[in-house]
Computed example of a mutant assay.
Amino acid sequence: MKKSLLLIACLFLCSHVIIAAEVDTALTYSKSMKKNIKAVVIKPDSYKTGKAFPVIYLLHGAGGSYAEWAKKVPGIKNLVDQYQFMIVCPDGNVTSWYFDSPVDSAWKYETYVATELVSYIDGHYKTISNKKGRAITGLSMGGHGAFYLAIKHQDLYGAVGSMSGGVDLKPFPNGWDISKRLGKQDEFPERWKQNSVIDMIYLIKPGSLAIAFECGVDDFFYKMNVRLHDELLYNNIQHDFTTRPGVHNWDYWANAIKFQSIFFSNYFSQKL
């Protein structure tokens, strides 16, 4: 009787083993900036089976780092297991805005994230290494960066998202070190326009990107996200735009990434 109870207990425990994603810290080298840069890489538990997985590049906001998403929203590990993709969190060096600075050659974060990091991840992990297996999203500055990189590199990314994205730089001439990356707005107005997502949508090729973005209605970036939605509608560019109560904080983004994950999972599961 005791042996039977012990066997039943063992079977019960085995059936409730928690499947846990694995979190790596990858040390990558940027040839363009001549320095090592860290990135968080989250793999589903099933990664060990040997099959290739799609990848979501998840960008942090201004003042953040590569480790911030994993620390602030540990639940993203559950999303990796639930939807069977990988998440890669690059480092955008606090206020890079994820473009190559025309002012300072030491800041080449478009080249790093879209070229050097993607090449590293595809070379060191089992990934679906084409645009059908690659998406990018982020919060705030990272929302801008996701759109910016996806539009500039439509051969690399098949889907793009944004959460509370700073999709128009022009209203903030003194904000978040943007002038350090682009030069002062009153001296280089075209430069600010050329690097603002809202002024780049004419570059989107028909059917090239699956797009989903969102913003809380009490967020200071809300109105610019509504304008981006209107511009996309006017230009007949398909997209999903969602608003809900919320401000510019981690409570909102921890919830938003769940919806972004569903969108990307649906995209990855589409038949070629």
Rank of each mutant, 00 (worst) to 15 (best):
C89P: 04
D104L: 05
F147C: 11
H124W: 11
L149I: 05
G123D: 01
K126G: 06
V88F: 04
V88A: 01
S162D: 09
S96P: 03
L79R: 08
T111R: 11
M141Y: 05
G165T: 11
V94T: 15
K108N: 04
F99R: 00
D81E: 03
I121K: 13
V113E: 10
Y157W: 09
T127M: 01
C89E: 02
G158S: 02
K131N: 08
A135K: 02
I136E: 04
S162W: 02
D155C: 14
G138T: 06
Y120C: 08
L117W: 12
L79Q: 11
G145K: 13
I136T: 00
S164G: 13
V113L: 02
Q154L: 01
S101V: 09
A135C: 07
G133S: 09
G143R: 07
G92E: 05
Y120H: 12
Y109R: 10
H124G: 13
L79W: 07
F85P: 06
Q84G: 09
G138Q: 03
G142Q: 04
Q82V: 05
Y120D: 08
A135G: 11
P102Y: 00
D122L: 15
I128S: 09
H124D: 13
Q84K: 11
T127N: 05
K126A: 02
A146Y: 01
A159T: 11
G123F: 09
V113D: 12
Y157G: 06
P102C: 14
A106H: 13
M86K: 07
E116P: 08
A159M: 03
K131F: 09
L149N: 02
S129K: 07
D104K: 07
G161P: 08
V118Y: 06
I87K: 00
T127Y: 07
T127G: 12
F147M: 13
I128K: 12
F99P: 08
W97Y: 13
S140Y: 07
K152H: 03
G158E: 05
G145D: 11
E110Y: 05
S119K: 15
V118A: 06
S105K: 07
V94C: 15
S105M: 09
S101P: 05
V94L: 15
A159W: 01
S164Y: 08
E110H: 09
I87V: 09
G161K: 03
P90L: 07
G143Q: 02
S164T: 01
S101E: 08
D104V: 10
I136M: 06
V94W: 15
D104Y: 06
L149A: 02
T115E: 11
C89V: 10
D81M: 05
I151C: 06
E110R: 08
P90S: 08
A106T: 13
P102E: 11
T127K: 09
I136K: 03
S119I: 15
I121T: 04
A106E: 10
W107I: 13
E110L: 10
S96Q: 11
